[in-house]
Simulated scan of single mutants.
Amino acid sequence: MKVEVYAVLKEYFEKEFTLQRSFDDIHSLRSFLISENPQAEKLLNISRFAVDNEFVDNNYSLKENDHISIMPPSSGG
């Protein structure tokens, strides 16, 4: 499973990384990432997750070869 993070999340995780373990859904992936880096919890809890470039909800069932993008809220001018 390939994971890519954006914006400020790159301060907590590598921009792209591969996870060798399986996760049932987005919720379990988010929980794992929080356990790996508790300092990112607040940000992960408000971030949107996309699988293969489509936003998904917390109950989305993950597959082994999914490409997950995690995008925190952003502001611009």
Rank of each mutant, 00 (worst) to 15 (best):
E64T: 15
V8N: 13
S28E: 10
I34Y: 10
L9F: 07
N59P: 04
I70P: 07
S61W: 00
S69A: 15
R21L: 07
A7K: 07
E54H: 13
S61M: 08
N37V: 09
L19G: 10
I34C: 04
R30F: 01
L62V: 06
N58E: 14
V51Y: 12
N53L: 11
D57S: 12
I70W: 05
P72D: 02
K42I: 01
M71A: 06
S75W: 08
F17I: 02
H27W: 02
Q39W: 01
N58G: 02
D25Q: 01
M1A: 10
F13P: 04
Q20Y: 13
V5G: 13
F13A: 04
N65F: 13
N45G: 01
A7L: 08
I46D: 09
I26Q: 02
R30L: 03
S74I: 15
A50M: 14
P73T: 03
N53W: 11
F49T: 08
D52C: 01
P72Q: 06
Q39H: 11
Y6M: 11
R21E: 12
S69F: 08
D25M: 03
E4F: 05
E64A: 15
S75V: 12
E54R: 14
S35P: 07
Y60N: 03
L44I: 03
I34P: 08
A40I: 07
F32T: 05
E54L: 12
I68P: 08
R48T: 06
N37C: 13
E41K: 15
E36L: 13
N45K: 15
S31W: 03
Y6S: 09
R48M: 06
R48V: 00
K10E: 09
D57T: 10
K10Q: 15
V51E: 12
Y60F: 15
S74L: 13
F13W: 04
N59R: 12
Y6D: 03
E64V: 13
I70E: 00
D57M: 04
K15S: 14
R48Y: 00
E14N: 12
S47V: 05
A50Y: 10
R21W: 00
F55C: 06
Y60V: 06
Y6P: 08
A40L: 09
N53S: 12
H67V: 11
E16A: 11
F17C: 00
F49A: 08
R21Q: 15
L33G: 04
Y60W: 12
S28K: 14
P38N: 05
V3A: 03
L62S: 06
S75Y: 11
S47N: 10
S74P: 00
F13N: 05
V5S: 11
D24L: 13
I26K: 03
